[in-house]
Write a protein that binds this DNA or RNA. Structure first.
Length: 574
DNA sequence: AATTCGTCCTGC
DNA sequence: TCAGGCAGGACGAATT
């Protein structure tokens, strides 16, 4: 079959006793149907991908793609029906009466990460996945989704969003497969340096114990319990440290001999419990940290993670992120992504110009809106998060004069949210409707006999929701840019040469992991694991992908996305 | 005993 | 690290 005849989509689903692959032409008409046994499925997928990559359509990416990855194959494109459904169901770009909105059986929450290759166990009970997987149901949902996009007010943007979201699903699976190269010995060294040697019998590490002893001396209580917030609070009160909480920032405001060792104890205790030896043993195997990424796990479209705290790795441990011998890490993050995205989606050329080719905050200082970089940063964050008081809130009005378009967009988003309306990101992900309780409290507060208490609460609810919708359009649109960046970069890396098998980590027989590949993603940062000789080429590709993502989403609007990028032997600060 | 809630700290 | 958005994880306390 020549590329001209290649199907646009191949839809996978379950039939009576097997799996069936249905090929669809560009107009949606069926052009082929192949029954497949579980055993032959992966080989068939790989063969079809090799001839002319279609867009694979399936109910949920991990169930179908993990077994393909495990057998060493990578796929270029997919359409993830679950993720796309969640977007289309709520999108304000989609017609109110679109059938996709009422297909409730596709509302399944992101499945708890199921790492077993359950898909190919034809006898598994329906319990393990509540998502439809029968081929007729899958084809019907795909048709509903294509119809919803075709009749939407912004079909091109929704197509981009669905493609980016689906690419994210592939990337999440590949990130987990490849893992983040992790030097357990270096991690152990850091722990030993900070906490003391790993205790053999389950006791407290030396340096933590030393800090605890100093705290107990200062508290004049040899048996004080430091891990119980209420007990610690009472002990502090007894020695005259009248804090309301035991949080670090409040303790730091007091002067007392107990403060310094207590802060030290809390720091070490946190390190031990969150990322100590237990974490290392549980999450790092064969030199890789493999968290579960959850694309679309956050309402705004950001990814969440489940297990291992992948999105909260403390800075002090990043030195343990190390490439394999002969390999390098390319570590890149976008400088001030969200305000740049705000400039683009509001078409605020003044803000874009302040950011262009430089440090955005410095650019704002140059415009005279504020007098220091620190003020610029606080003002911008306040604008995006809805600060009304304090230093940040005080600075926001100055931005309103300097960047009226950008500020009008976020202010309008907040006003819409306060009224109970929904807002949408650049590509069309819409905020969820307010809860029934929220609406109930608003309407109760509007009745003539409303108590002032009810009015106060409703007002606060409304403001909370306004801050949410204000931030939603910025955070969500930034997530769309980041996904586009990642998807573009992934395809560039896929064209780079693979090194011979011996040059990759021993565990990795997977072909794409023998060429430069994504190893970590965190909102606006990416880490690529690459053979050393390709590192410079990867760095260029990473920057080019950022430029391409900006063009794809914002056309020729003059906003740029400069990267802080370095090639390194460690993800820790050089 | 098991589950949920609150506090604290980490990341963006 | 005061404020103002989005998260996850550990742990102890409260609830069932």
């Amino acid at each position: 079959m020549g590329a001209a005849d290649a199907p646009t989509w191949i839809v996978l689903g379950r039939a009576a006793e097997a799996i069936v692959a249905v090929e669809l032409a560009a107009d949606g008409s069926e052009s082929g149907r192949t029954p497949l046994s579980a055993d032959e499925l992966v080989a068939w997928i790989a063969a079809r991908e090799a001839s002319a990559p279609p867009r694979w359509v399936w109910n949920d990416t991990p169930g179908w793609y993990d077994p393909v990855l495990a057998r060493g194959h990578r796929l270029a494109r997919c359409h993830d029906l679950r993720l796309s459904h969640a977007i289309l169901r709520d999108s304000a770009f989609v017609a109110d009466d679109a059938a996709v909105r009422t297909a409730r059986e596709w509302d399944a929450a992101p499945a708890a990460p199921d790492l077993r290759p359950a898909l190919f166990d034809l006898d598994r009970d329906a319990e393990s996945s509540r998502l439809p997987d029968g081929i007729d149901a899958v084809l019907a949902e795909f048709a509903r989704q294509r119809d919803a996009v075709a009749t939407a007010t912004e079909p091109a943007r929704l197509r981009l969003l669905i493609a980016a979201e689906s690419a994210g699903a592939l990337i999440a699976a590949e990130l987990r497969s490849a893992g983040l190269p992790w030097d357990a010995a270096e991690h152990d060294r850091i722990l030993t340096e900070m906490l003391g040697p790993r205790p053999v019998g389950g006791g407290m590490p030396e340096k933590m114990d030393a800090a605890a002893r100093l705290v107990r001396i200062a508290l004049d209580d040899p048996t004080a319990r430091l891990d119980s917030q209420p007990k610690l609070l009472r002990a502090l009160h007894r020695v005259g440290v009248l804090v309301e909480s035991t949080s670090r920032w409040e303790l730091a405001e007091h002067r007392h001999p107990v403060i310094e060792p207590l802060l030290e104890y809390k720091k070490l205790s946190r390190l031990l419990s969150a990322n100590g030896w237990a974490w290392l043993g549980e999450w790092v195997h064969d030199g890789r940290f493999r968290p579960v990424y959850v694309p679309g796990g956050v309402v705004t479209g950001r990814w969440a993670s489940s297990g291992g705290g992948a999105l909260q790795l403390p800075r002090q441990l990043r030195a343990a992120v190390r490439p394999d011998p002969g390999w390098r890490l390319v570590v890149a993050d976008v400088a001030q992504l969200e305000p740049r995205v705000l400039a683009a989606i509001s078409r605020d050329t003044a803000l874009a110009r302040a950011a262009y080719g430089t440090d955005l905050y410095a650019g704002i200082v140059d415009l005279g809106a504020v007098t220091s970089r620190a003020e610029a940063k606080m003002a911008i964050l306040g604008a995006m998060y809805g600060a009304t008081t304090g230093d940040s809130g005080r600075l926001v009005p100055r931005l309103r004069r300097t960047f009226p378009r950008a500020m009008a967009l976020v202010d309008e988003a907040a006003a819409t949210g306060e009224r109970g309306g929904t807002v949408s990101t650049w590509l069309g992900r819409s905020s969820p409707a307010p809860s029934a309780e929220w609406l109930e409290r608003q309407s109760r507060a509007n009745q003539v006999d409303a108590t002032s208490d009810a009015e106060t609460r409703a007002r606060r609810d409304a403001r909370d929701r306004g801050r949410f919708t204000r931030n939603f359009i910025v955070q969500g649109s930034a997530a769309e840019w980041a996904l586009s960046w990642l998807a573009d970069l992934r395809q560039r890396l896929a064209t780079m040469p693979a090194v011979p098998e011996g040059r990759a980590a021993p565990r990795s027989g997977i072909a794409f992991e023998r060429r430069p590949h994504l190893a970590f993603f965190l909102h606006d940062e990416v880490i690529i694991h690459t053979p050393a000789e390709l590192a410079d080429e990867v760095a260029v590709a990473t920057r080019d992908a950022a430029t391409a993502a900006g063009r794809l989403l914002f056309g020729d609007f003059p906003v740029d996305f400069p990267l802080d990028l370095r090639v390194a032997d460690s993800a820790g600060k050089a």
